[in-house]
Amino acid sequence: MMKTVALSALTALTMGFSATTAFAGDAAAGERDWRGCRSCHGITADDGTVIQRGGRTGPNLYGVAGRAVASVEDFNYSEPLARYGATGAVWTEELFVEYMTDTTEFLRHHLDDDSVRSAMNFRLRSGAEDMYAYLESLAPAE
């Protein structure tokens, strides 16, 4: 009886969480891991405040969580990423983690084109959830 009650309570709790809750990264760990991204990306708030200095090879990552893919104005995205962005895709934690694990494989899968190559060759084999949580923590207030 006690086992049934415990399982019912656990089921009720887990049913209330969204599918992305399974990731729930650690923003502090993501901030520590930022050094792997800064050679190509910076984080600058809309008002010009520099949050993280970085390169300009990649787009500004401020507000990337929940933003449409390939949508930073005046940034010259690669053709495959721009094509994927044209589908209306939005950076969710799940998509971000998949992308960061293997950018080329991500584009090949989502564009259904085995000839596609990503312009970004960096892979984050672990900690992508943490990086997303960090970037999400910097999101502009709505």
Results as ranks from 00 to 15, higher is better:
Trp34Lys: 07
Cys40Leu: 11
Thr101Val: 09
Val50Pro: 15
Gly54Pro: 08
Arg32Cys: 06
Leu95Thr: 11
Tyr99Asp: 05
Thr44Trp: 10
Val69Tyr: 11
Gly36Tyr: 15
Tyr99Ser: 08
Ala45His: 11
Leu107Ile: 01
Gln52Arg: 15
Gly54Met: 05
Thr103Asp: 00
Phe96Asp: 12
Leu61Lys: 15
Arg32Tyr: 11
Cys37Ile: 02
Asp33Leu: 07
Phe96Cys: 08
Ile43Lys: 10
Ser39His: 07
Thr87Gln: 12
Thr44Lys: 14
Ala65Ser: 14
Trp34Glu: 04
Asp33Thr: 01
His109Ser: 13
Glu105Ala: 15
Gly54Ile: 04
Tyr84Arg: 04
Ala86Gly: 11
Arg38Leu: 07
Arg67Lys: 08
Glu98Thr: 10
Leu111Gln: 06
Thr87His: 12
Glu94Gln: 15
Thr104Lys: 06
Cys37Trp: 07
Asn60Ile: 00
Asn60Gln: 04
Asp33Trp: 03
Arg56Trp: 11
Asp47Arg: 13
Thr49Ala: 09
Asp26Tyr: 12
Glu79Asp: 11
Cys40Trp: 14
Asp26Gly: 06
Glu98Met: 09
Trp91Gln: 10
Glu93Thr: 07
Val64Thr: 14
Glu73Gly: 03
Thr92Pro: 14
Gly30Asp: 09
Glu98Gly: 08
Val69Phe: 12
Val97Gln: 07
Asn76Tyr: 05
Phe96Gln: 09
Asn76His: 12
Val97Thr: 10
His41Cys: 04
Thr57Glu: 09
Val69Arg: 10
Val97Leu: 06
Glu94Tyr: 10
Tyr84His: 08
Leu61Thr: 13
Glu98Arg: 14
Gln52Phe: 15
Glu73Tyr: 02
Cys40Thr: 13
Thr103Asn: 06
Ile51Glu: 03
Met100Gln: 11
Leu107Pro: 00
Trp34His: 08
Ala27Thr: 05
Arg38Asp: 13
Gly54Asp: 07
Thr57His: 10
Thr101Gly: 09
Val90Ser: 06
Thr57Phe: 11
Asn76Gln: 13
Cys37Ala: 03
Arg53Met: 09
Ala86Ile: 06
Thr101Cys: 06
Ala28Cys: 12
Phe106Arg: 04
Ser78Asn: 07
Gly85Ala: 03
Leu107Ala: 01
Phe96Ile: 05
Arg38His: 10
Phe75Arg: 02
Thr101Gln: 10
Ala89His: 14
Pro59Gly: 05
Arg35Gly: 03
Glu93His: 00
Tyr99Leu: 03
Gly30Ser: 12
Trp34Pro: 04
Gln52Val: 02
Glu73Phe: 01
Trp91Asp: 10
His109Met: 08
Gly30Ile: 06
Val97Glu: 04
Gly48Glu: 01
Leu95His: 14
Tyr62Val: 00
Asp33Pro: 00
Met100Ala: 12
Ala27Ile: 07
Ile51His: 06
Gly58Met: 03
Arg38Ser: 13
Glu105Tyr: 05
Gly36Pro: 01
Glu73His: 05
Ala86Ser: 15
Arg53Thr: 13
Cys40Ile: 11
Gln52Gly: 01
Asp46Ser: 13
Asn76Cys: 03
Gly30Gln: 12
Val69Pro: 07
Phe106Tyr: 09
Pro59Met: 03
Asp112Phe: 08
Gly54Phe: 08
Glu98Asn: 09
Asp102His: 10
Ala89Met: 11
Glu73Trp: 02
Arg35Val: 05
Ala27Pro: 14
Ala68Ile: 04
Ser78Pro: 04
Arg56Asn: 13
Gly66Tyr: 11
Ile43Val: 15
Val72Met: 04
Arg56Gly: 13
Arg53Pro: 06
Ala68Gln: 15
